[in-house]
Design a protein around this nucleic acid. Structure first.
Lengths: 248, 248
DNA sequence: CCATCAATGTGAACGGCGCATACATTGCAA
DNA sequence: TTGCAATGTATGCGCCGTTCACATTGATGG
């Protein structure tokens, strides 16, 4: 169904790259039917191979899920790198550095929401976070995993002068927690926000983070009229939340 | 194995409260073997009843998990209420209000770490977060779910004067995200911290949060010598993290 | 050029699972 | 007492993960 002439073998036995095909099928199945409902047999069926064949390439189901999770981490890293690239501003400027932190945060949350099942696999009881993640080819040359990207982006805040080196200490944990928490709550539907509300919530979370790091409010557009506008948008967000909370 | 004389029936048929017994067995099994490995049949076996009997009390496995999740939410609410009670300070004072926010945050993270599997069930693909949660008897009179407790605790910050009403807007989302994010990362072992590091990380996250809300640094013990001590502790935390990051 | 062999896929089987259906037992209420 | 709704049992279906013996293949070396 995939390769008929280019693979070394032409018909049945000796699939070109069964491992890859299984991972692709698994990705699609997990995306469409959720992580819980995924079955190794169904992935094998999809690829057109017997269930036992999968065991020539993965020790067990958990190993397949783990490989899937590592590739997910790689795709997340790529999404973050791409988001970083497209941030405007003078290199080395404080405005650009804060913009880049906002961008990686947005990329993280967007990835979680758009690939919710992948995200659950990546942070579920499968993935072993001690192993290196599996970067896609486009992200290979840079060789940064998501956490490394966050660390580097925080360092830029210091070198650009947006925050002091002292205030930066430990911020990988605080920033990661905030953004990961928002992403998790959205994915688990504990915080049922629509796309617009998600954007506002992320803005809020990241601004709190930067303010807490001692970043100048003027860098975040929080003085004058912009500040007032933000406050009223937050109020709208809150009103919606309370409505949902009380209606249950 | 549980009731032999006090239940209305004495021997086999008509278990006293099978629903309760199944939920208790499920809680224990999920705690000991993880949420993924849990099976309805095993819970029935544990209680000493046929597998099909469970379907007289739960529509399907998902319904049982959902009930378990709701009870977990109730236990979390109780833990937060208890943590709130034991915070000292003059009622209405800003110091007490900030202490109470720190306390609920600590209770949240501690619950997640100590009942990791429950926590996964509560925020996994089971629990329907639109339904009211199932409070244990001790928490019934107050009738507050975890989110409500957070909202009320944030309101205390305003009424005590620790933060302005304007700065408070939307903070339920930001505060919940931070704390939930830290809890999730710890539970999924993406952030492998020991107990002491967890405490420091939580302090950091909550302080950032309060600072971002415009809370006076003096309220958080961040001026003078205390500030320096915190900075050096954070540095230790960071050094450990980088060690772990680089060793892989 | 062909024998050999490691790699890779197949088929059948095992026990466990979620769930449905038909049936048995019980307590209660008319 | 009798009938009935509630509650538990027995059995069976199809799917699952996993294993093991066996089949097929492409590459290697005599």
């Amino acid at each position: 169904m995939e390769n008929e002439a280019d693979a070394p073998s032409r018909a049945h036995y000796h699939h070109g790259d069964l491992r890859r095909a299984l991972l692709d099928a698994a990705l699609e199945l997990v995306s469409s039917k959720g992580a819980e409902g995924f079955s190794l047999r169904e992935a094998a069926r999809e690829v057109g191979v017997s269930p036992a064949a999968a065991y020539r390439h993965f020790e067990d189901k958990k190993a397949l899920m783990s490989a899937l999770a590592m590739e997910g981490m790689g795709r997340l890293a790529l999404a973050m790198e791409k988001a970083l690239e497209s941030v405007p501003g003078a290199p080395g400027s404080a405005a650009r550095a804060t913009g880049r932190l906002m961008a990686v945060g947005k990329a993280y949350v967007d990835f979680a929401v758009q690939h919710a099942s992948d995200f659950q696999v990546m942070f579920g009881p499968w993935c072993d976070h001690q192993e290196p993640c599996d970067l896609p080819p486009e992200a290979k040359p840079l060789g940064r995993d998501p956490f490394r990207i966050l660390v580097d982006t925080l360092d830029e805040l210091v070198s650009s002068g947006a925050v002091t080196a002292e205030a930066r200490q430990g911020m990988e944990i605080a920033a990661w927690s905030s953004v990961h928490g928002l992403a998790s709550l959205l994915v688990s539907d504990a915080l049922p926000l629509d796309a617009k509300e998600q954007r506002l919530a992320l803005d809020l979370v990241l601004r709190i983070q930067l303010l807490g790091m001692g970043c100048a409010p003027s860098l975040l557009g929080l003085d004058g009229k912009r500040g007032k506008a933000d406050a009223s948008r937050s109020a709208t967000l809150l009103a919606n939340l309370f409505c949902k909370l009380n209606s249950r």
